[in-house]
Nucleic acid binder design. Structure first.
Length: 586
RNA sequence: GCGCCCAUAGCUCAGCUGGAUAGAGUAAUCGGCUACGAACCGAUCGGUCGGGAGUUCAAAUCUCUCUGGGCGCACCA
């Protein structure tokens, strides 16, 4: 309908151009939008206001000319000139009924589109270090990333969801050592736990499991472990030197093979936990991409070689630098440290080269907002690798600030003081948690009050939407109990019976769904869909309270049933895209 | 100090690529079940869109500036 009116306007403009009334080289893209107020018709165009200046006419005069030039079309019952020069279109109510038939025809695929043309998009999100369970901060990225991915798929892109596993580097060594020290405790050694180690309970759990399976296999006496180890911070030393020395000691005492084994057990356990957690949260990946693999198959080496050939690398003070500053970054970055180790950035360059080489049309990285300073250097790397930087789109998700009532909850993986995503799910449920995360714009700082989310969970807006769906189901159950049965065909043939105001506004809302989906996907804004679903649920609840569906008049009854079944379908489609349940009853 | 993000009703947030009278939820007050589920609906109350200047026929939306918050400025990941 929207496109139809747009077509009419374009015809009118072309006509005026041919007549010499208008003289333009380009026609503006924005032409028509849905009105907010029913008094302004169904659609409105600001064309005359935009073109007034180049046409050297006053807006209302121009609007009159445009209206006069508009072709006659029976889909439009009235065209009005309003306000400073708006052109308002009133759509033939009979046209509005078409959406119901369309919804029943297409079912769960109503709203889907092919605008993505099968283009391949890679979406990388969450990618939290596997040094502990996911916390509620990761939850927002997980909900957002999966929703964006699913939406893109719904509008015709081929989406590849990926989690980058940082299974190399010092943090992982610290984790292995943390678990090992807990293991030694289980073995009966008296360990003073380092201040810089991972203190969460999960390290103890993993340690106990290892002990149960392998007994004393990895045990070394604490005296051997601590011999000549520099003091920890609480004892007047340096916490980094302390933990690094312990890591080195663990490696020498266990030897490379046992160390590797132990390390792998810790990594695998945590990674499995994360995978399961995410699946239960409605997040599924096509690929878990290992950073270590980039090291092992010399991808990092190759990536740096490519930069070197391009003339982007140089040596200074014993380190190797990437001259990213000439490509938009604020300063150059080290890729190989003085000690010969690659930096994290080096493997990230290799990872992005790998993404580019896999032939994606678009690459989307979803990061926490604390990484925003990292964007220019990755873009610089993309450019240095010879690719177009617009191929990479970095979407930043702001932090969710946690509160328990008035009190702010501190989040730190290291200290082990954090609320896990799993805890959140068990307290408020997957549906409520996802809905809560997704209803806010991702760039918006968000307050997440756990106390409110748990104690008043009935006020959670997700129930409002789910209730609308369950209510339709309930009506259908009542229908069966009355022994009336549903005659959809009869209803669809008599949709003109739907003349109530509530009915026409519901029709208009239903018709908006495909547009909302498209916008929501192309702008990476799932919250638009969430807000739409709330609007749709509201229109339905209002209608429900104002009119009876199960009336004696069989024709009217079935017309209304076909309408509310369409509502049910769209609610289910929308919720489904957000991986939120649409329950039959609640 | 430099850079990025944010600021809309008491609180939590929408406001669609600038558009007509800035909207929801929640809190407060009042009203609606002998009804297809009241986990709902309706009404009232509540706003200098952080302040100021500019661009425009039109600014919450764009530009500049100031204020106030968040985050980032490693040979950490």
């Amino acid at each position: 309908m929207k496109q139809k009116i747009e077509g009419l306007i374009i015809q009118a403009v072309e006509k005026l151009m041919a007549e010499g009334v208008l003289n333009l080289d380009t026609t503006p893209a924005i032409m028509i939008e849905r009105t907010r107020d029913a008094q302004h018709g169904d659609f409105a165009s600001n064309l005359a206001l935009v073109l007034a200046k180049p046409a050297k006419l006053n807006p209302r005069q121009l609007a009159e000319k445009i209206i006069a030039a508009l072709p006659i079309n029976d889909a439009i019952t009235k065209i009005e000139l309003a306000g400073p020069g708006f052109i308002n279109f009133f759509v033939n109510p009979n046209m509005q009924y078409a959406v119901i038939k369309q919804i029943h025809e297409l079912g769960h695929s109503f709203g889907l589109s092919t605008i993505g043309k099968g283009k391949k998009i890679q979406v990388e999100f969450v990618s939290a270090n596997p040094t502990g369970p996911l916390h509620v901060g990761h939850g927002r990225g997980a909900a957002y990333g999966s929703a964006v991915s699913d939406l893109l798929e719904a509008v015709g892109f081929e989406v590849h969801r990926e989690y980058y596993v940082n299974d190399a580097g010092r943090q992982m060594d610290i984790l292995a050592t943390s678990i090992w020290l807990r293991y030694l405790e289980v073995c009966g050694e008296h360990v003073t736990f380092p201040s810089n180690a991972y203190r969460g309970d999960y390290a103890r759990t993993i340690a106990s499991d290892i002990y149960n399976n392998d007994k004393d296999n990895y045990r070394r006496t604490i005296e051997l472990v601590l011999e000549d180890i520099p003091a920890d911070e609480p004892d007047g030393g340096d916490k980094d030197e302390h933990i690094d020395a312990l890591i080195a000691r663990m490696k020498t005492l266990l030897g490379p093979v046992l160390y590797r084994e132990f390390f792998q057990i810790g990594l695998a356990t945590i990674l499995e936990d994360i995978k399961l957690d995410l699946i239960e949260f409605g997040v599924d990946y096509q690929q878990w991409f290992s950073e270590r693999q980039l090291m092992d198959d010399s991808s990092v080496e190759n990536a740096l070689e490519r930069l070197r050939i391009g003339g982007y690398l140089y040596e200074q003070e014993g380190a190797t630098w990437f001259s990213s500053s000439q490509l938009g970054d604020e300063k150059d970055r080290v890729v190989i440290r003085e000690n010969g180790q690659y930096t994290y950035f080096a493997s990230d360059i290799a990872y992005h080269m790998n993404k580019l080489d896999r032939g994606f049309d678009q690459i989307i990285d979803i990061w926490g907002a604390d990484h925003h300073g990292y964007v220019p250097r990755v873009k610089a790397a993309i450019k240095a690798l010879g690719a177009d930087e617009s191929k990479l789109n970095v979407l930043l998700v702001q932090f969710a600030v946690l509160y328990r009532g008035e009190e702010r909850v501190q989040m730190s993986t290291r200290s082990g003081e954090f609320v896990t995503l799993r805890q959140l799910r068990s307290e408020v449920g997957k549906d409520a948690a996802r809905f809560f995360y997704l209803m806010r714009r991702s760039e918006q700082h968000m307050d997440f009050d756990l106390k409110l989310a748990t104690s008043k969970s009935n006020d959670n807006p997700v129930f409002y939407v789910q209730y609308a769906h369950a209510r339709v189901c309930s009506v259908l159950r009542q229908l069966d109990e009355k022994g009336w049965g549903k005659n959809l065909l009869l209803g669809l043939e008599n949709l003109e019976k739907l003349t109530e105001e509530h009915e026409s506004s519901l029709l208009a809302t239903l018709a908006r769904y495909p547009e909302v989906l498209e916008r929501s996907a192309l702008q990476y804004e799932p919250h638009q869909l969430v807000i739409y679903l709330r609007d749709l649920a509201h229109d339905f609840h209002t209608y429900y309270n104002a009119h009876q569906f199960l009336v004696d008049d069989e024709v009217l009854r079935n017309a209304r049933l076909s309408l509310i079944c369409a509502v049910k379908q769209v609610l289910a489609n929308g919720l489904g895209l957000l991986s939120i349940n649409a329950p039959e009853s609640m």
